[in-house]
Design a protein around this nucleic acid. Structure first.
Lengths: 220, 220
DNA sequence: GCAAAAGTGTTACAAGTACACCCATGG
DNA sequence: CCATGGGTGTACTTGTAACACTTTTGC
């Protein structure tokens, strides 16, 4: 399950199924583990086969196992779902399975419960919740930002994943106060409008202390 | 991985292996999934087979999958670990596999990295961290308490799992203020010494809002 | 100048920490 | 009476929410 933020919306990579069952329906990319491979390695390999992306440059974590005996009509298949987060990624290379891959906003993928193949809607819901929760306690949000990035870029990641607006000044204070979250480059970037913003790169810290909780939402 | 709190210490159920490999060494209980079964059902079945406990009366949750190809010398075995939390449980019934089952403090099971079979030391470490984290955000600690229980009982669960002492008065305020955590029974219980304590049963809430963070530790 | 985004300051409030203190029981 | 754990009150500190305000750019 590969997430990115494009045009201020959280999007997920879906493929169109080329085989039965669920022929032609969108699904999460995936595949089978091989002998001698860990699940982490299999996830990285599938990621690269289906999208051409080098998984070592993005955040990858295990979500959980799905084991309903009827989840695949062909027979017993247990899936261990993985979550990958990356910056606004290039459209997938037309690889073997990737021909029909495309980005879709998570909200629209979840709008109709039966639009995704298998139990992928449930997996996607779990992954969305995990991503939202991870933003509170870790610095993974920076994995969504192409470097260098501004505090505003980072804030728009949080807003896209959480689905509501944050107070820019309070957000700024919180992330700049957390030691090791942002490394200042000393450079600035001008956009079409407004004052130029300071540029940062990802810091070494991976945990957010104190956490950045999503309780304080502002009417979007 | 079955946790309980006995004599104010967090303990884990270990079995002594009756077969090769790791013959005679302690290990976490487990088994293989069957056709037509979900992983949750398999975990419940193994729990009952090995301990005689009815899993529906305790808290059970999936931890994660372990997939190193060399983790089992007999060949490729992928394990999906589960975590069960329960009140001071009776010593396991002498069932088929359970003859050599016993409770052991988690700290001593982890003291020597090679005392447990397979990669079970790593699994146990992950499970301990999950349990500690769950106590911060959910009401599962009450699953460790035989009903009815006192605020002091509940506090001693937190102290056993987190491994340090808490301020009794502040703890009391936090858990009693959280709507739906504790249902007062109106009864009291006298112990050998001190003022009798009010008795409670588990409430309906499963999430702790605000969380009960383990940052504020008191020198144990 | 004006709009827009970056960035600073400040006040009000919620929650947590530390600790003093009272309560009720067994011995 | 005293020791012990239950339970209440409170001053202090930390973090957050809300929002006013200044800065710096493009048009």
């Amino acid at each position: 399950m590969i997430f990115t933020v494009r045009r201020s919306r959280l999007q997920v990579l879906l493929i169109e199924r080329g085989n039965q069952p669920y022929l032609g329906q969108p699904a999460l990319p995936g595949g089978f583990i091989r002998d001698g491979e860990t699940l982490d390695e299999a996830a990285l390999r599938e990621l690269s086969e289906e999208t051409g992306l080098d998984g070592r440059t993005l955040h990858l974590e295990q979500l959980r196992a799905y084991s309903d005996p009827d989840r695949d009509p062909r027979g017993r298949v247990i899936t261990v779902a993985y979550l990958a987060l990356g910056p606004d990624l290039p459209l997938p290379v037309a690889g073997t399975d990737a021909a029909a891959a495309h980005w879709e906003p998570v909200s629209s993928a979840l709008a109709d419960d039966t639009s995704l193949a298998f139990d992928h809607a449930a997996i996607l819901r779990d992954g969305l919740e995990r991503a939202r929760s991870q933003l509170e306690h870790t610095t993974v949000a920076a994995a969504f930002c192409p470097e260098p990035f501004t505090v505003g870029d980072l804030r728009r990641i949080y807003e896209a994943v959480w689905g509501f607006s944050l107070d820019p000044s309070n957000f700024r204070r919180k992330v700049t106060r957390t030691e090791g979250f942002l490394n200042p480059t000393g450079e600035r970037r001008s956009s079409e409008t407004g004052r130029p913003a300071a540029l940062y790169r990802r810091g070494a810290a991976s945990l957010l202390i104190p956490p950045l909780l999503r309780s304080g939402e502002v009417s979007s």
